[in-house]
Nucleic acid binder design. Structure first.
Length: 343
DNA sequence: GAACCGTGGGG
DNA sequence: TCCCCAAGGTT
């Protein structure tokens, strides 16, 4: 691991921020000001999600719920509808809870320190540091995937970034490097660097504004950084989806459990099967609907069934209007698309 | 500390 | 088709 002296650190900050001022993504909608509410919403949306995807959601969200008070007072269903399709829906629920804490418990007074921000629901070490530095100029490194990648290469840090304890290694290494004058810009500059010259695949280090600080590039081992163990591949799960219409043409839905995958969302009733031979009813499709989550892969066979004599707990018929009014997970939209296709 | 939690894009 | 990934947090 490299160890920079004070002179190198100062030169690095200057080169980084000079580049950031000229070529950073100042146009991103959450960078127009340092409003902590806008920063909070953007950071929650950006967790494990690409910038290009988030921009549209962010602008719509801000138009509908411009202030933390608006969000705190909004019904959860509205928040989820604005989040529909973004995934990791606990983020939306936590964002809603955090807004209530700030607007009601704290009476609109924002927590400004890293530790106080960390106490908000959905706000972990990275997000707390991002908000503290960007909105409140607190001098803390916002260590996300970009930060890991950039500094693993610059400093040749060999620790596995998939391991939780590695965060401390990086924190100790980079804490002295964060610019005390412009901590928020420093962190955002690292992110911009990490998605441009120092991106994961096919980086362009030769033209990077901080090439001369890049120890991995210097030693010709840049492709070995960051060190990161691979994720396990999703496990296949087969279901049959019960397609049941009532006399009004409404479709039977079932609410998922309050915890776990797609918690609380409505989908067609899904029944686990071990093989397609177990399908019980009129098969509506020759090919299954497949949907991949981060750790599971669903294979779904739609099956027509008769109208039940009475509804079970957690079941109800939904009209088309009702289906469009509530947030549905992507996999349910895929099922609906397939059903339309069959007609 | 490992497993869980969504989705879409690109090679 | 499959694999990897992308501004992580919670349990």
């Amino acid at each position: 691991m490299e160890n920079w002296d004070e002179q190198t650190i100062k030169a690095f900050r200057k080169d980084l921020l000079t580049w950031y001022d000229q070529e950073g993504r100042a146009y991103l909608p959450w960078r127009v000001d340092h409003n902590p509410y806008r920063i909070l919403v953007s950071e929650l949306m950006l967790q494990q999600t690409r910038v290009d995807t988030v921009i549209t959601y962010f602008n719509r969200f801000m138009k509908e719920l411009p202030t933390v008070q608006d969000l705190a007072e909004a019904p959860e269903e509205k928040v989820l509808k604005l989040w529909e399709g973004l995934g990791y829906y606990s983020r939306a629920k936590n964002l809603h809870k955090a807004a209530k804490v700030v607007a009601f418990d704290l009476k609109g007074e924002w927590p400004e320190s890293y530790d106080d921000l960390l106490a908000l629901p959905g706000v972990g070490p990275y997000t707390a540091a991002a908000i503290a530095s960007i909105a409140f100029e607190q001098v803390v490194p916002a260590i996300d995937g970009n930060f890991f990648r950039v500094f693993s290469r610059l400093l040749k840090i060999d620790d596995d970034i998939a391991k939780p304890k590695t965060r401390k290694v990086f924190y100790n290494a980079v804490e002295p490097i964060v610019d005390p004058e412009r901590p928020g810009d420093f962190n955002q500059a690292i992110m911009d660097l990490g998605t441009s010259y120092m991106k994961t695949v096919d980086p362009d280090t030769l033209h990077s504004p901080v090439r001369k600080y890049n120890a991995a590039y210097r030693d010709g081992v840049e492709d070995q950084y960051p060190v990161k163990t691979k994720k396990k591949k999703p496990v296949l799960q087969r279901y049959q989806a019960l397609v049941i219409y009532n006399e009004k043409g409404e479709l039977l839905y079932e609410q998922r459990p309050k915890t776990g995958l797609l918690a609380g969302f409505w989908t067609l009733p899904l029944r686990p099967i071990d093989s397609i031979e177990e399908i019980d009813g009129e098969q509506l499709s020759i090919k299954p609907i497949t949907h991949v989550f981060s750790h599971r892969k669903w294979e779904i066979w739609p099956v027509a069934k008769a109208v039940p004599t009475e509804l079970k707990e957690g079941q109800r018929f939904l009209s088309v209007e009702e289906q469009e009014a509530i947030a549905l997970p992507k996999v349910q939209h895929k099922i609906l698309d397939k059903l339309k296709e069959q007609l």
